[in-house]
Design a protein around this nucleic acid. Structure first.
Lengths: 131, 131
DNA sequence: CTGGATCCACATAGATACTG
DNA sequence: CAGTATCTATGTGGATCCAG
């Protein structure tokens, strides 16, 4: 037995982090917003395999966890812009390290050939989004 | 619109990382094994709210993704030891940064009061494991 | 002790249609 | 355009029993 007592604030904050961003879509949403704000429809276009319902839900959760700012403009047609909060911006370097780790640990995956979207068309190899 | 074309090996490797470790239990399993190998039953004791079936499944997936080494000893009663691979060890610093981020971004959570287990008893506040 | 097999409950995802 | 509402399908998790 390795130990009987584990004092692990780190484990619990790690769990908390994973509860917030540890799923299929949220890291990608944060990544896509890292260059600036984006509209709902653009996010949906850039992540072709997500449904509107799920995207809506993910954006709500990210907003309620303080990672996203939602700005709704009273126009016709309506416009909603999503952008990262400071909290989320602080997370970007870590996300970068997570992707760096995958590139090193799984060189055979050849991630450099992977695109989300090219010239407005859906990619032929978006299978990484399908688990 | 922020951009029409996104060249994002980082996004895809990030997705891959999250497919591997981005769920409720796997980061905790990796964290618990960071000090050395551990048996199945000990992991189950240290994560009281996981069922055997799910723990088995998580361990299998981690093993097939090259993060865990599984050593089965032909004894009676049987003994199985799990330990981290080099690949997983390379991930530990990033996991540490993820927990650091949560501590900074959510100071009100007071993770330092959170334990997985104390002196062999189940903790009174393991709610962080229940989403 | 370490699981595998089975059954069941529940939550989530997907598809479709609709609305302000 | 940016969602909501509804229904269904899928799958994941929990509990229990069984096996080597």
């Amino acid at each position: 037995m390795a130990r009987k007592y584990i004092d692990n604030p780190n484990a619990c904050s790690l769990v908390h982090t994973m509860n917030i961003i540890g799923n299929k879509w949220k890291p990608i949403i944060l990544y896509l917003l890292s260059n600036g704000s984006m509209r709902f429809g653009m996010l949906n276009t850039l992540i072709p395999t997500i449904s509107k319902k799920v995207l809506t839900n993910q954006l709500k959760e990210l907003e309620s966890d303080g990672l996203l700012l939602r700005q709704s403009f009273a126009e016709i047609p309506p416009r909603v812009e999503y952008s990262l909060t400071e909290k989320a911006i602080g997370l970007l370097p870590v996300l970068r390290q997570l992707s760096d780790w995958a590139n090193e640990a799984y060189p055979e995956m050849e991630f450099e050939q992977c695109r989300i979207i090219e010239n407005g068309k859906k990619p032929a190899y978006n299978n990484v989004y399908k688990k």
